[in-house]
Design a protein around this nucleic acid. Structure first.
Lengths: 337, 337
DNA sequence: TTGTAAGCGTTATCAT
DNA sequence: ATGATAACGCTTACAA
């Protein structure tokens, strides 16, 4: 591997001069600069980022930890985060926790030992607090996306889940639905709780009794065949006329389960959900959704993170960005007589 | 930041002893070991991976460069790669080139300066050869996925694109279609060429003349509204009864364009494509596809890479894994009278 | 304008 | 079983 010293030798200068040329710092005569650059070219020199990070005490690398790489909400979010990071000259490491706390914990190890400058992450749930504490101890700046964690102070970019949930419910209710079931993510996740709350509040507002049986709680992802979901559907009576799914993955699992029971959407049963389907939004059936601004979650989150890192000293107050969702009415909801 | 010396001081041993404890190398008395471990706990010590990499001359980090993070083929592939990497104790860095050669080039810079131990990548196209040469110069092991690059020798995991293309065509032909158009990725990409070849060979086999006009070449992704595609469709006559799309993104773009022309699939026009839709496969319309083993592309590719790195000395012959695709017949193809 | 020396946090080598 | 020293490739501080 060619080092700064190889360049220095061949160019008959000191390593320091080479360093200066590389970083455009200090004064170097044009002649020397040209000579050094030429040698770097010849030897195909590429600086060793690790050596540099070691002395600089910063890696110019950020980490993005998402919970489901197969979910278009997160991949679109990733694009946003990537764009923002690169725009500011940071490299980006990705990790994928699969909504799994122990995988998340492993990634926290990686993050800590890898000495990244900061982390943008969607926590797997409330117990992630322990992982975040480890970041805090080490003074690793982080920004939360999509989910808050009780007991943890930090910048965060969130969706307005409760409000969106209410709108989705409003839509169903206005179409005459009264028996509405909820397929939701784990209640140890703040966004799931907010969605549940919106659901309950709208039921109450319409003087409908909340039926515990109508609520099914499972993982937000990744997608799998849900035998649990099937079993739950089997024991439902009266069978709901409509379902609200806590995210797009759950909507897919639900659709899958409904189909295997021979039920058509929207003819036999109506479905709405959180999150749009990325490029698949053009596929039938057009599900009515609360579309979140996935790209912005990533882009803005990354911006908050970079600000935090840049203005490290002036701690400043915690920032919270709440992104509204847009209800896109398509045709997965049937109007009841 | 607490270092190995902090531990050493507090435990009244040398840094070397701490290092031995951390890495379980050499001989350390149980008593000393226990003492050191206790101090590490107390001080919440996490080794500095960069310092370690610097001396070890290896980072235990691999890089995965894909071309479209919004494409489920690549995200599923990523899961496979991630699983394989972690299984062998490697960390994984992701990058996303967006099918864009200059973004790819930037990532090659990152890869080089970051001193990763190896790279698994889907090249953006034949011109990627220049980038791969840079890896070769530096002796950075790499494995190609999905696409080969003329002039570059390397291990590779590929799909059997030509064969799958023929099967897809066979399906269309057997349903009576004769006017079949192809929406394909750039011909500077080997897989696109293979798919075109399969298309042409089947036409020839059935004594159908290849109509240049029936072939539209564009980017494999990421998804966008395709005004070019629209324009192309507009000047097509006779209008094809069926379309073969070179991947799932193109299929979506095509569907989008067809829909805006008021055409239904399969009633008005038939569509088949490469790559399944991940969890969206359950959405209507069920497109008939050549499903590739995305997960295996990543998993096996990563295995090849790790083998290469491990047996670095015994160069061994280039390995080539060809994964067949499975035709999944759904209902996007109409039987013609 | 250029160079020398020390140090970033770790491990390999050689002593003891 | 444990420790001292040098080295990995680079940059900062200081000197010339």
């Amino acid at each position: 591997m060619v080092t700064i010293y190889d360049i220095a030798n061949k160019a008959n200068v000191s390593a320091m001069t080479v360093s200066r040329v590389i970083n455009n710092t200090g004064r170097v005569s044009d002649k020397t600069r040209a000579k050094v650059k030429k040698v770097m070219q010849e030897l195909n020199y590429v600086p060793n980022q690790m050596a540099r990070s070691l002395v600089l005490q910063q890696s110019k690398t950020l980490f993005l930890l998402i919970t489901d790489i197969t979910n278009p909400f997160y991949t679109t979010l990733s694009r946003g985060a990537e764009d923002a990071a690169r725009k500011h000259g940071y490299n980006l490491l990705f990790g994928n926790s699969d909504e799994n706390l122990s995988k998340e914990s492993e990634y926290i190890n990686t993050i800590l030992s890898t000495r990244v400058d900061g982390v943008l992450l969607a926590p797997a749930g409330d117990p992630s607090a322990a992982h975040l504490e480890r970041l805090l101890e080490r003074n690793v700046p982080f920004v939360l996306i999509d989910r808050e964690v009780p007991g943890i102070q930090s910048d965060i970019v969130q969706g307005d889940s409760k409000e969106a949930s209410k709108k989705l419910m409003e839509h169903l209710l206005s179409y005459g639905h009264r028996n509405i079931a909820l397929v939701n993510g784990s209640s140890s996740i703040s966004s799931a709780r907010d969605r549940l709350q919106g659901y309950n509040e709208m039921l109450k507002l319409h003087d409908l009794s909340a039926n515990e049986r109508y609520i099914f709680e499972t993982s937000f992802g990744p997608f799998k065949d849900q035998s649990g979901l099937m079993a739950w559907l089997d024991q439902l009576h009266p069978f709901p006329t409509a379902f609200l799914a806590g995210n797009n993955v759950l909507a897919m699992e639900l659709l899958h389960a409904l189909r295997s029971r021979g039920l058509q959407v929207p003819e036999d049963v109506s479905v709405v959900c959180f999150d749009d389907f990325g490029m698949y939004s053009d596929l039938d059936p057009f599900i009515t959704v609360a579309a979140q601004q996935a790209y912005q979650f990533g882009y803005l989150g990354m911006q908050l993170l970079i600000e935090r890192i840049t203005d490290r000293e002036e701690a400043g107050p915690q920032k919270k960005i709440i992104l509204p969702a847009e209800i896109i009415v398509r045709r997965s909801v049937k109007k009841l007589a």
